[in-house]
């Protein structure tokens, strides 16, 4: 009896394993299909995307070369990297300071700020799309440096909210001890509070990086004509050069996915934890 149910369990888990393996393959197949097509000539893609390249359709790295040249992909990757890194750095620094301050210094204004920041998370981008573009233009923020300010503004809601939640859970004693030692708030924040914030900082960093790296409409409206980030460059492939070149499109999709996959594989643990933490708190 016991042995049979044991056996049952074993068979069950093998079946489960097979099921999950099949599902995983299914989940990854879209990426492989794109990868496969990126090596095919542009006229052999849209009608037969599921066929492997053969001697007639294989074009080697041609699509990559023409795509990189057309879209100036390296520039795009550079701008994406610059904007993401600098915006995330700014968000981490400033919103953690703000969150700590408005959590610790309790007054009506600060709690009002907290609520406004939090509520801003709900508002869809289209609400401020047009006016923000205008304001940013008037203040000369429509360049790759100015856009950092805009991202800081848009990132404030979620980031302050998450940092605040964490700060509330830090015991006050640490900070008080530091104050008694004669450290001012600035020293206290950077020497005592910041190290404690590390786990939540990783979370906030990951959430904001994912958002900014993949963001299309905001950078398109602000700086898209002069500085194309990767999503803008890909969208521009459609129509920007007369008519779409499917080969180059496939190659650029692959190039857009590669950095994400590399980043994911290297920091997988943090990403999943961060995303869960972000969701649970948010």
């Amino acid at each position: 009896m016991e042995a049979r149910s044991q056996n049952h369990k074993k068979i069950g888990s093998v079946m489960l394993f097979i099921l999950l393996t099949v599902l995983s393959i299914l989940f990854l197949s879209p990426i492989f299909i794109v990868l496969m097509n990126s090596f095919k000539g542009k006229f052999f893609i849209s009608e037969t995307p599921f066929k492997l390249p053969n001697s007639e359709t294989f074009v080697g790295l041609d699509n990559y070369l023409s795509g990189i040249e057309k879209t100036k992909f390296l520039h795009a990757a550079g701008w994406s990297l610059f904007i993401t890194l600098s915006s995330v750095t700014a968000i981490l620094l400033f919103t953690s300071m703000t969150a700590w301050f408005i959590t610790r210094v309790k007054n009506k204004f600060n709690s009002m700020l907290y609520y406004i920041f939090t509520l801003s998370m709900i508002v869809p981008f289209q609400m401020v799309m047009f006016t923000m573009t205008k304001v940013a233009n008037v203040l000369h923020l429509d360049n790759p440096v100015g856009i950092i300010v805009i991202y800081l503004g848009f990132g404030t809601g979620l980031s302050v909210f998450m940092f605040s939640g964490f700060v509330k859970s830090i015991p006050l004693e640490l900070e008080e001890a530091s104050m008694i030692d004669g450290c001012g708030p600035i020293k206290t924040f950077f020497l005592v509070v910041m190290p404690v914030l590390k786990p939540i900082t990783v979370t906030v960093a990951i959430l904001n990086s994912m958002w900014i790296w993949n963001d299309y409409l905001l950078p398109y409206l602000l700086i898209g004509m002069d500085y194309k980030t990767i999503p803008i460059a890909i969208q521009y492939l459609k129509g920007g050069y007369g008519s779409i070149d499917m080969g180059a499109m496939m190659a650029m999709l692959v190039l857009a996915i590669i950095p994400i996959v590399v980043f994911y594989i290297t920091c997988q643990k943090y990403i999943i934890e961060g995303v869960v933490a972000g969701a649970v708190k948010g």
Binding site: T133, N137, H140, D142, L221, Q235, Y236, K238, G239, G240
Partner: peptide, 20 residues
């Protein structure tokens, strides 16, 4: 020289002309 993607000239002109 900036080239608007096919079918988006009016849109592009509209957002560009409002800029500084």
């Amino acid at each position: 020289v900036v080239t608007a993607a096919s079918g988006t000239y009016e849109q592009t002109l509209k957002s560009e002309v409002a800029k500084s």
